[in-house]
């Protein structure tokens, strides 16, 4: 499968384009890095590819088909701050099952403990909560995962633990990954190729 953004143009304000004529493609099974200074629209591009934002110009397609507007979205996004990506009043189990019931293999691959499920989001550490968000994003119909500074707020050991699990799952399921990160060492370590946003 091929996720493509063609001639994408996006602006928040009337007169200044964040980017224009931007082309990006990610194939299944590929791990692609996305770098660039802050304010150049890395996060916005991730949101456009995952259907959270609509571009003013251009389109996003999977194998030539436009992204679906309803039903399960094949491109899922994981954010930098897990505590802001979950409903603070829900128990973890409900958060986890928001997009369908994840299978137990996935939970064990991500190191999610059963006893976490009964807790509230604030009772988990950042790393534990981020694992929940990743599991939530990795439903059976997910084909592409956008990791927007997914482990930036985590310590090195937790970061290595999480990436090892995610890369293994992505390999097994032939998912395409877009890794948005400021950490060039991380990008060099896990990505087959990378894109720099400032060049556009």
């Amino acid at each position: 499968m091929l996720l493509e953004g063609e001639n994408i143009g996006f602006r928040y304000e009337r007169n200044s384009w964040l980017f224009q004529n931007l082309n990006i493609s990610i194939e299944s099974g590929e791990v692609v890095g996305l770098r660039g200074p802050s304010g150049y629209g890395k996060t916005t591009l991730g949101q456009i590819l995952a259907g959270h934002q609509m571009p003013q110009e251009g389109q996003v397609t999977i194998d030539g088909q436009a992204l679906p507007l309803k039903g399960y979205h094949p491109v899922q996004l994981v954010f930098q701050h897990p505590e802001r990506a979950v409903n603070p009043r829900w128990r973890i189990q409900r958060v986890l099952e928001e997009g369908g019931k994840p299978d137990s293999d996935l939970l064990s691959a991500l190191g999610i403990q059963k006893e976490w499920l009964k807790r509230s989001p604030h009772e988990l550490s950042g790393g534990e909560l981020q694992r929940i968000c990743i599991a939530r994003a990795l439903g059976n119909e997910t084909r592409f995962l956008i990791a927007d500074e997914m482990t930036t707020m985590l310590d090195a050991i937790t970061q290595a633990q999480i990436w090892q699990s995610v890369l293994e799952i992505a390999r097994a399921r032939k998912l395409g990954l877009l890794v948005i990160s400021h950490d060039q060492h991380l990008i060099k370590r896990i990505c087959g190729r990378w894109i720099s946003l400032s060049e556009h």
Partner: peptide, 19 residues
């Protein structure tokens, strides 16, 4: 040592378990 070795520019080695 584990923290140092877990960096992506070093061994990217995850130590098992959690704090």
């Amino acid at each position: 040592k584990a923290l140092w070795q877990a960096l992506p520019q070093n061994e990217f080695k995850p130590n098992l378990g959690v704090q």
